[in-house]
Amino acid sequence: MSFYDTWSAVFIALIAGVILVGTALIGARLLGPFAREQGKSISYECGMLPTGKNWTQVHVRYYLFAIMFLIFDVETIFIFPWAVRFLDLPSHAFWYMVFFVLILSGALFYAWRKKVLEWR
């Protein structure tokens, strides 16, 4: 199986997934009832009329977790090739990674001390 063969399969599956959702939505549009009405299109708030703005503000703690995730996600991207090939690399490849993980766990413990991980 060549490179183009396997990755054209990804492309075809992408199209197949879009077609699958698309036919379902079009089929529902053809089969289902469709009656526009003012009352139906009010956004749901447990049966009461919605109050205030629809897009409320989100707490900043989600943003902090996103930044923490970014640190560790980049770290895992570096670990991926290392994990598969670290036995074939020149010596001390393992200890370099230990050092790298220790630096980043320093970042995690700093965040822990600063109470970023607490849900306040």
Binding site: A24, L25, G27, A28, R29, L31, G32, P33, F34, A35, K40, S41, I42, S43, Y44, N54
Partner: peptide, 13 residues
């Protein structure tokens, strides 16, 4: 049942 149900989109979406 889900296919023949009405498909709603809220006004302020």
């Amino acid at each position: 049942k889900l296919v023949v149900k009405e498909d709603l989109r809220p006004r302020n979406a």
